[in-house]
Nucleic acid binder design. Structure first.
Length: 486
RNA sequence: GCUGCUAUAGUGUAGUCCGGCCAAUCAUGCGAGCCUCUCACGCUCGCGACUGGGGUUCGAAUCCCCAUAGCAGCACCA
């Protein structure tokens, strides 16, 4: 029965074919190590992953840490952890700061091929010339001069801002962004956490160098890189290298969570957020903490696909994917929000057996001992309510006197409760409860839950009539849970 | 401003290349009902879209033009 059900869930999302991928692909995911990965990264990571699984090949994780200003030493580890959580088919990992010597050597070659020059112009001055489509004086230097200056750059003969390497492009290109863009620059500070360096490549150079060196065949990235792709083509042409196949997907707007690394870091430092996995953040670790499964994230991203249109990310769709994964496995428990104590008159002690999962009897039941007094949700005890069904136990009649309710045993018959249209509510024996707080993105919900919930630490369970929740902490003072979704 | 990309229901997506089989797919969401000792899951039914205007054509979501809107880039960031 379960097999039949889950088959219906196999909406195998078919991504469009990649041109020239028949014999396998080499693709890469190339994050900047400035913080942990967030949902935005997950799209590129999942798309690449899906194509590699479809065509076979290698999946390279390339850490792009060529800007020491934007490197968080802790991020190297976090990125790897996050990708591991997503369980991607990564086959190789390279770090660009380990490869500076390769870029330097290629730069020398590029100068020798007359594809680049060392520019010692003032930056502002260059910009003025560039906008007027005029070559700067450095552009026509001899090969020898360029090589001498390049060597001077590498041997600390220049300070930050005094020299850079520029790629020769077409100064008449109508797009000013294409004209003689920089490939290397000098940075005196800050120091790079992984390597001692003075000359750093800009991404357009290091990306081309690595894509070529690593044999990357297909590149899937956001459309914010379209201009870079055009720039990078100049470098491929200078070297005579084969250009990979590119796909650029549209921008994905994500509402409801904080995504900017700098903003997150600020908030963590000033105590606004508890850490990188604070559930108000859009990091993968925050999603994990909330009980979102990595497969749900991947499925949601594949469903979005690689369209060029700008889209807005839908939490509903993610939650729906997650529910498909979580609903069959999550055990059910009672959580009583904002509980009131009710003494039930005229009831004998009862033992209730409630199923751990409604469609899987083999998991067994939880046992709740009724001895006279229960906790029930306050919002179910309203003046117009005269009968409630305590789920898996019995019916209770409520009589009101001066606004004070009295609860009386009203039989075991479920049919009676149905006939009376009584709400079937979750409840707890007053003598066996654990305080429980559910943290949601909006705030917290406090109440009590079954003691057995303690054994579900780290798991996603469903609190009946409340929603799915991940048990985050279990201590003497109770249970802390994170709200996943309805 | 310059350069370029895009435009299908609330959201995502299929169809657009090679015009007819599209009174437009699937999912999600929402509504109603069934099932059910959860307001979950499952099932049934329903709601809801081709940005606008011209043109080409026997015929246009699909091709062309214009308009509008959104986005990206124009960094010694990635």
């Amino acid at each position: 029965m379960f097999a039949a059900l889950s088959e219906k869930h196999e909406h195998k999302k078919v991504l469009p074919d990649l041109e020239g991928a028949e014999n396998g692909v080499v693709m890469r995911f190339a994050p900047n190590p400035s913080g942990p990965l967030h949902i935005g990264h997950a799209r590129a990571a999942a798309l690449n992953d899906a194509y590699i699984k479809q065509y076979g090949g290698r999946y390279i994780l390339r850490i792009e840490d060529t800007d020491p200003k934007r490197v968080d030493p802790e991020a190297y580890e976090m990125v790897v952890e996050d990708l591991k959580w997503l369980s991607l088919a990564i086959t190789d990992t390279v770090t660009q700061s380990d490869r500076l010597h390769l870029y330097y050597a290629l730069c020398t070659q590029l100068i020798e091929r007359n594809g680049a020059y060392v520019c010692t112009c003032d930056n502002e001055q260059f910009k003025v010339l560039k906008n007027k489509k005029i070559a700067c004086p450095c552009r026509d230097q001899s090969l020898e001069t360029n090589l001498v200056l390049w060597d001077k750059m590498l041997t600390h003969g220049f300070k930050e801002g005094e020299a850079s390497v520029r790629i020769k492009t077409d100064l008449n290109n109508p797009d000013p962004a294409m004209r003689d863009f920089p490939a290397f620059r000098i940075l005196d500070a800050p120091a790079h956490p992984k390597v001692i360096a003075h000359v750093y490549p800009l991404m357009n150079f290091s990306v081309v160098a690595d894509d070529h060196l690593l044999g990357v065949t297909h590149v899937i990235r956001g459309k914010d890189h379209i201009a870079n792709t055009r720039r990078q083509r100049y470098i491929y042409d200078h070297f005579g290298w084969k250009v990979p196949v590119y796909r650029h997907y549209g921008r994905m707007g994500i509402e409801g969570v904080v995504l900017s690394t700098s903003q997150m870091r600020l908030g963590i430092n000033d105590g606004t957020y508890t850490g990188w996995d604070d559930i108000r953040l859009g990091t993968l670790r925050a999603l994990a903490r909330r009980g979102i499964s990595p497969d749900a994230v991947k499925n949601a991203m594949l469903a979005i696909g690689i369209g060029d249109t700008d889209i807005s990310f839908s939490w509903d769709n993610l939650y729906s994917e997650n529910k498909k994964i979580v609903d069959p496995v999550a055990n059910r428990y009672f959580f009583v929000p904002d509980p009131v104590t009710a003494r039930i008159e005229g009831a004998q002690p009862h033992t209730a057996h409630a199923m751990l999962h409604p469609s899987d009897a083999s998991r067994g039941t939880r046992t709740l001992e009724f001895t006279g007094t229960v906790l029930i949700p306050k919002n179910e005890v309203l003046p117009e309510v005269t009968m409630l069904r305590l789920k898996d136990l019995f019916n209770v009649k409520i009589s009101w006197d001066n606004g004070m309710p009295t609860f009386t045993y009203a039989g075991d018959s479920l049919a009676d409760a149905r006939a009376a249209k009584a709400h079937i509510v979750q409840w707890l024996p007053a003598q066996a409860t654990v305080p429980c707080t559910i943290l949601t993105q909006e705030g917290e919900m406090s109440g009590a839950c079954e003691p057995a919930v303690r054994s579900e630490l780290g798991k996603v369970i469903q609190f009946e009539r409340v929603g799915f929740v991940k048990i985050d902490g279990v201590g003497d003072d109770g249970v802390v849970a994170y709200f996943t979704h309805k």
